[in-house]
Every structure is written in structure tokens, then in C-alpha cells.
């Protein structure tokens, strides 16, 4: 007896009027969605492996956009393309555009270093430098020529506050960052990324190496940061994506299967593959 529906079509037969009525029924306030990242037919090859195929995605300002998908689907690769960290691998080749604020990030006049001050990154395993907490957070501004102690002091304090860790470390700024717990280290890394005052923060599975309480702290932090920054987060934790994000993109074998509001993806996705993935029926 079939209790799980058979969906053969990719788009289910829903008329748009119904959707709009539902939206109006929820009395949504008018949110102006301004795109901050837009990819146009972006393709990427690792040697002969066509790792990303015709990616067309838009991410909006002050939103948390989640990227989910099984291992090897290209989600990390994609996010690392947004700040061109993917170029650290020598055999990489790309085609298509990635527009950051309507500027193609691959254009010559846009240096990779400049891009990375505006598009920061937090990695899966916390990776603070073996330096003091202060020097970790001040590293970004310092490396871009900011030297005055007063300015740096202020930047460090603001970043640590924004990362919700100031109170925990304000009395030991000159202690080695590696002496902190995993969850604290990750928040230091977030503070470090915030210090260059970026627009966008990319997070590649930011909590997968953390314990549940630290995970919750980081997720709460993401909600706070949303007000001033735009966040793109890769996660293999479905519940995290559902809890935290505004929109979700489902990647599979290098292409985007579905990209929609998180509510839609997790409550009533259009594509059967998305449904199967989010309900854990395949991975």
C-alpha cells in the first residue's frame, strides 16, 4: 500500500494563485530582496571532472542561504568559488559568471585579495592562527595596512562583540587562541572574518566539528549577524538548514535540483529528489 506519494513530475500541479493566497494569509510584511550574489551558467571542472554544471543561483542581502546536498555534490566547491578559494587547486577551470554586487569576480581589475576582504570565510574545522586572540582578529586589518593601535583595538573589540565572544575573552586577549575550546575557537574565527567588515560571510559546515551547545551558540550568532551581513552556509545537517536559513538550495551531482524558500523545501518541495533527500530517504 502506497503511503508515500509517487511524484513523477518535477513540478507538481500547483497553481500560483493558491500560493499567493497562502502568502497573503500569513500576512507577510514586504521585504525588499536585494541580490548580493548572482551566478550565471557557472561551470567548474577539476581536470576532466565536471564538478559544477550550469549553476544559476541568486543570494539576497541580509538573508541566510543554505546549501544542502549529499557528499560530493559540489556544495563546498561552489561556496569556495564565491571567494575564489577554489583556485588554490591547480587543475581548476571555470566558465560562466559570478556576480558580486553586479561585478564579475573573475574580472582582472578585481583582485582576489580585495574580494576576500568583502567576502569572508569560516571553515569547517576551527583554524585560528597560533597567535594571541588579539592578533588573530587584528590579522585581517593589519595585513591590509591598518596599523594604528587605537583603530585596531576598536576593530578587535567590535568584531569579538559581534561574534558574541567578547565577554568570554576580554580579559585574556593576549593569550594564545589555541587555548580556547573548539566552540570558542570557531567564534574567534568568525570574529576574525568580521574584522575586515565584509558584506558576505561564507560558512563551510561551520558547526560540524562542534559539540551541540557550541553549535546552538553559533546558530544563534548567525541569526544575529543576518541583520548586518549576508550569509551563505553549506551544511550537511538538514535540521540546521531548516532551523537557520531563509532560502535553501539543494545540490546533487554538481547541479542545482531546487532552490526555494526554506519553508517550501522542507515542508512541500517541488522535486521528488528533494523530498527524498530532506526526509533522509537517500543520501
Amino acid at each position: 500500500m502506497a503511503n508515500i506519494k509517487e511524484k513523477n513530475t518535477i513540478t507538481k500541479p500547483v497553481d500560483n494563485t493558491t500560493l499567493e493566497e497562502t502568502t497573503q494569509g500569513e500576512k507577510k510584511t514586504e521585504i525588499i530582496r536585494e541580490p548580493i550574489f548572482k551566478t550565471n551558467n557557472f561551470n567548474l571542472w577539476y581536470g576532466d571532472n565536471h564538478a559544477l554544471q550550469d549553476i544559476n543561483l541568486t543570494f539576497n542581502k541580509n538573508e541566510i542561504s543554505a546549501i544542502i546536498g549529499p557528499s560530493g555534490c559540489g556544495k563546498s566547491t561552489f561556496v569556495k568559488s564565491l571567494n575564489r578559494m577554489v583556485e588554490l587547486v591547480p587543475v581548476v577551470r571555470t566558465e560562466g559568471e559570478i556576480l558580486y554586487r553586479d561585478q564579475d569576480i573573475f574580472e582582472k581589475k578585481f583582485t582576489v585579495e580585495e574580494l576576500r576582504t568583502k567576502v569572508g570565510m569560516v571553515f569547517q574545522k576551527p583554524n585560528p592562527f597560533p597567535k594571541s586572540i588579539y592578533d588573530n582578529v587584528a590579522y585581517g586589518p593589519r595585513v591590509h595596512g591598518i596599523r594604528k593601535k587605537k583603530v585596531l583595538d576598536e576593530v578587535v573589540e567590535k568584531s569579538l562583540c559581534d561574534a558574541a565572544i567578547w565577554d568570554e575573552v576580554k580579559d585574556r586577549l593576549h593569550e594564545n587562541a589555541l587555548g580556547l575550546s573548539g566552540g570558542q575557537q570557531q567564534r574567534i574565527c568568525i570574529a576574525r572574518a568580521l574584522a575586515t567588515e565584509p558584506d558576505v560571510i561564507l560558512m563551510d559546515e561551520p558547526t560540524s566539528a562542534l559539540d551541540p551547545i557550541s553549535t546552538t551558540k553559533v546558530e544563534d550568532l548567525m541569526q544575529q549577524l543576518k541583520k548586518d551581513y549576508s550569509i551563505v552556509v553549506v551544511t550537511h545537517n538538514m535540521q540546521q538548514a531548516a532551523r537557520v536559513s531563509d532560502t535553501t538550495a539543494f545540490f546533487y551531482q554538481g547541479y542545482v535540483v531546487e532552490h526555494d524558500e526554506t519553508k517550501v523545501i522542507f515542508e512541500n518541495p517541488r522535486d521528488q529528489r528533494t523530498e527524498d533527500y530532506v526526509s533522509g530517504r537517500f543520501g
Binding site: N3, I4, K5, M238, Q239, A242, F266, E267, N268, P269, E275, V278, S279
Partner: peptide, 10 residues
Amino acid sequence: QSPVATDTRI
């Protein structure tokens, strides 16, 4: 079981 989508509706 943290159900989603159809599972939740069921």
C-alpha cells in the same frame, strides 16, 4: 525522528 515534508504531514 525529526520528520519533514510528507512525513510531517502524514
